[in-house]
Write a protein that binds this DNA or RNA. Sequence first.
DNA 1: CGGCGTTTTGATAGCCATCAACTTCAGTGG
DNA 2: CCACTGAAGTTGATGGCTATCAAAACGCCG
Lengths: 239, 239
Amino acid sequence: MDIQSIKVACSGCNLRELCLPMGLKPQELEHLDQIISNRRRIKRGASLFSAGEAFTALYAVRSGFFKTCITSADGRDQVTGFQMMGEIIGMDGIVHDQHACDAIALEDAEVCVLPFDRIEQLSREFSALQHHVHKIMSREIVRDQGVMLLLGTMRAEERLAAFLLNLVQRLHARGFSQSELVLRMTREEIGSYLGMKLETVSRTFSRFMEDGIIDVRQRYVLIKDTQALERLVNPPMRN
Amino acid sequence: MDIQSIKVACSGCNLRELCLPMGLKPQELEHLDQIISNRRRIKRGASLFSAGEAFTALYAVRSGFFKTCITSADGRDQVTGFQMMGEIIGMDGIVHDQHACDAIALEDAEVCVLPFDRIEQLSREFSALQHHVHKIMSREIVRDQGVMLLLGTMRAEERLAAFLLNLVQRLHARGFSQSELVLRMTREEIGSYLGMKLETVSRTFSRFMEDGIIDVRQRYVLIKDTQALERLVNPPMRN
DNA sequence: CGGCGTTTTGATAGCCATCAACTTCAGTGG
DNA sequence: CCACTGAAGTTGATGGCTATCAAAACGCCG
């Protein structure tokens, strides 16, 4: 078994409990291995795909960090999500056979290419995979609705608190610290995602630090009081 | 052929070009007819499903108007979408086998019940249907990202203009006027969807009327200058 | 016709954007 | 090794947009 074939096997991937293979049986996993045709490396700042490009595949983030963003006709930019290892990108492209957003690597990254026609083909054979694909798309829909709630109803402090909690929670699920993280994105990108200006992001970080809730030094963040953040996101009761 | 069987057939439905059957071949359509087990009537103000309820089916809106909304732990409410005839609701429920939001009828409505296990089953047999289901979910993801752009970057006037244009465009695709519409939702529901307060919605309507862009009388809206609305959504260029 | 939910409109306040200056950091080349 | 340079981040002052509070007008339904 040469190195190449090891590299592209879901069955041996340390992300298999988080990524596409999650919950599949060994036999089904082997079939998945067949469709993971290859990997792609993306340098920091480069795009995995851009809006308008032909859609051919989904991508599973193997390592590194991405942002997805859409640009409106008049040049407004909105970050619609940050993706880390084990997460799937590209489902926006299915409707119109072309991508609706840009996916840009925030650091050197590697993705598994999942040709979508192969996914559909295999989904027809294995209902477990089929259902799993549906769940992944549904999860994305629910996630987006959560962002709508954030953008529609929350104030700056609440948004940033929710953002930090969401990030550490996802990192923790991948074996990282519950209370410590390194931001892979700029204040401006955080702001674009949360619907606020970069200055407001910076100020809000500073306020959290004054309040003793977190320590921030540039991209490094230490969460000192998780419950305080949770209280910010979910105030005792507003009525 | 009794009335009942006429009623529940996709193949004879006047919405078939917009709804789930869109683009399917006659043969595939017949199979779809089998899984459309029944209809459900929902009275104005009643819920089609609520957050936390077990997920069993998607629903195709046959007539009437719905809103979907999520409620956060502390009671904040966010309308995540308005659905009209020919549109599919319920995909939020797939991930966790229970619905993540409430779907509430804004007027007396009727939906076709699409048991999801039957959809998956039939999807395995007919790749056209399979791909179509994927497109519908992808469309929802892209729509949600558009709402994020709206909530994250637009100001009140731009949001309401985008909202009105989106509504008439969808109504026009269903054979209604391009310039006239009756809102099925309150100012408060519009505001919740657009991330603004009902007073701001009302004021913005008034401003549009002063500017001669629209006529508003309660729920009735006449769009007098579509291009003016489009200019509001897409300013000449911001840079 | 009365009652109530919905909508409109006004006055005021507050949050965040904007503009601006300065600091810190990372990467580069002398 | 260190100075240089530009990007990223911080902080301050100010203004504007929208929320909030309040009251009145309107329309719907029993």
